[in-house]
Design a protein around this nucleic acid. Structure first.
Lengths: 241, 241
DNA sequence: GCAAAAGTGTTCTCGATACACCCATGT
DNA sequence: ACATGGGTGTATCGAGAACACTTTTGC
């Protein structure tokens, strides 16, 4: 930003924005929910045919956050419940041409994704080049995108530990078991239901409703997210959008 | 990174790299040490005369990390003990022209900085446009650099809490009181010497030497940094350089 | 001897964990 | 009735904070 060089030689450097979009597939089914993310099949030369993170070029009149949202919207047609910058990747050899990628990571509500995917399947207009993959079973991706996903996973797991962010993956109303199972899917280990309940209750991030989900067993209380909390953990940076 | 646009319209976007460089001034003096950082006075139009973070344009054949190191070297002629990417700032209106700044933050050993500054003062070749400021008494900076420094301070304070990073500001050998005073300067509050000692000892980041610093009171043991630890806290990203 | 910092020991509290136990529902 | 998950109670452990106390130096 200090412009020491009179004629900046940056013509050959382009800025891209990508996103690691997390959601949960197979919630409320018998099996365990699985952390998943959408990938885009490349249709042009560098790594043609390989899967890659959704992304695009940064427009000159577009904020970084807006570009990340646009990328996300173009891929999933959905609004994220959480969006945060991950890292700027800028190694010279990460692409045949010089590209600096500012990567974001996001959380999507599972019900919206499920509905979207089901609607596309029914209408037969599923975007041909977008596919959801389980985060634990990714193929070899284009560019350095495998490393990027690894880093995003690390951040997500970290954040799930000290913050109550997992509800960003759940519908408007959900049970504590839902929230616990999603957290378990992220962390990759089982959690004590009793202790999990108390930790969540003490965090004041959830508001109990008077509705219950009935099923095979004792009905479970439904909770909803408390929007007054979420912030204050990201420091003095303004929330995106 | 997915190059959906055939002809990317990125010609007007330039990539800059800046650095928030922290060091400690006034260590081993009677008063409390003060967290300080170098600023550069702008000599051209946007915000001419105002102080700004050291930085420069990213070269086409240069990694982001390398550009940060270069920036740092040009400002201080010193090698950092710690260097980490802070954030990519890319709001459209943060500069008259469209600039995406990838900002790093770094720690410098206080003794090296003191020696450097003293040498320049003696030789009379002090760089006219670089000056060290106390982090708590910054003037109004160019661009969005005040916000950037605030965010870097937040990250530094955070990291000091859960990691043993403060020794990156200290000379090769130092006492526990040195380390505690630096930590106090960063956090802005006093710490219990007894508890601080135990926390540091249990963290295994320090190696006791058999040397002592003698002074007005009981001699204090000198410690040095244990280089085997430091990493593993930054996730799967490779260390810079 | 005294002041002051270096360094040690002890206690208390709080949060996380483990786990025993009761509750409510469908079958 | 009983299996199963929902939900509560309780003992234990460890890290951190508070603070009393001993040690070692310069003056």
């Amino acid at each position: 930003m200090t412009q020491t060089t009179p004629t900046p030689p940056t013509d050959e450097i382009r800025v891209a924005v990508s996103a690691v979009i997390f959601s949960v597939r197979g919630l409320s089914e018998s099996a365990c929910p699985v952390l998943a993310l959408p990938l885009v099949r490349r249709t042009r030369d560098p790594f043609e045919g390989r899967w890659a993170l959704p992304g695009g070029w940064l427009n000159a009149a577009e904020n970084l956050d807006a570009a990340a949202s646009r990328t996300l919207e173009e891929t999933t047609a959905l609004a994220p419940t959480y969006l945060e910058q991950l890292y700027a990747f800028g190694a010279v050899d990460r692409s045949p041409t010089r590209v600096v990628s500012v990567v974001y990571w996001a959380l999507l509500r599972s019900d919206e994704v499920d509905a979207q995917v089901a609607a596309h399947a029914a209408a037969g207009d599923a975007p041909e080049n977008v596919e959801w993959f389980a985060a634990s079973e990714l193929p070899a991706l284009a560019f350095d995108h495998n490393e990027i996903v690894d880093y995003a996973l690390w951040r997500l797991r970290n954040k799930v530990g000290y913050s109550r962010i997992a509800n960003g993956l759940l519908p408007e109303q959900f049970t504590l078991a839902d929230l616990r199972e999603v957290t378990e899917a992220i962390l990759g280990r089982r959690l004590d239901p009793a202790n999990f309940r108390r930790q969540v209750e003490n965090s004041n991030t959830l508001i109990p409703t008077d509705r219950f989900r009935t099923g095979n067993h004792r009905p479970a209380r439904l909770y909803r997210y408390n929007r007054d909390v979420e912030l204050a953990e990201r420091g003095p940076l303004i929330a995106p959008r």
